[in-house]
Amino acid sequence: MYRRDFIRTAVVATPAAFALPNLLLASKTQVALPPGGFPDLVAVRNGEPAPMFDRAMANFGGMKRFVAKGQTVVVKPNIGWPREPRTGANTNPELVKRVVEHCVEAGAKKVYVLDHSVGPRNAVCYEKSGIGAAAKDGGAVATPGGDEKYYQTVEIAGAARLKTTKVHELVLGCDVLVNVPVLKHHMGARATIAMKNLMGVVWDRVAYHKLGLQECISDFCLFKKPQLNVVDAYRVTMANGPQRARPEDVLAKKMLLVSTDIVSADAAAVRILGATPEDAKHIVLGHQKQIGNMDLSSLKIDRIAL
């Protein structure tokens, strides 16, 4: 039903077009502004993934603030690898399910869950990670990302190196993008969090590695900034990530970070790995390119322990 529509969308796609839903959203928002305004980042710890997300969204004024009735939402977890949930290689399926449920409750017309998996066979990754089933349970459609036909070429204005790339048509056509990465150590990029997770909505990842991984990760965020970033730090791969960590490398941090600012989310989450944004240079580059703010001291952060 949607393919052709999105091809059309892609043809006229400009970053400005994506700002439109945000403008509309402002008028539709019925959430009362709390005294002192909404936080930039909410960090919750010591709970299960779903209750932690509920708590974080309460502080953000609920999902209705981001998703208006009748809108199309893409939830982008990390479904990169054919690994079970206990390995922490993919986003926690319970969290994905809860995020989808929030979107559905907010009145979303359609919620899609997708990732261009790294591991062989998209469908196997969806199945083994438990996210395919979780998405369906939550009321979303788990759509495949493993075929080039879904990807449309876009230009990225202001990009240093990734001037053009092919993006999944559902991401191009959606009203709201909810980024649900899992926090992991990464042997290539040092850390994979929210910014790096968006590599899963493009087709040609080899180009990133060829042109400069850190620059390209930040360049893509110039094109598309998710309305909401939900960082799963429940089981955290502290070393030997992203996919073959030994059991002792995976720690139960039981944390969750939610932010509207993709750079802030990364800057805070990377510290859970015992690193700084300077270690994962795409975060610094994101700050320099004014994609977001990595200076945590200037942010309004709600820290919650359940």
Partner: peptide, 21 residues
């Protein structure tokens, strides 16, 4: 070396730890 239980209801070693930021 440290067996991790299946499912999130029994996460490994629930160490309570404050945010490092």
């Amino acid at each position: 070396k440290v067996p991790i239980a299946e499912g999130s209801s029994q996460p490994p070693a629930p160490a309570e730890e404050d945010f490092p930021f």
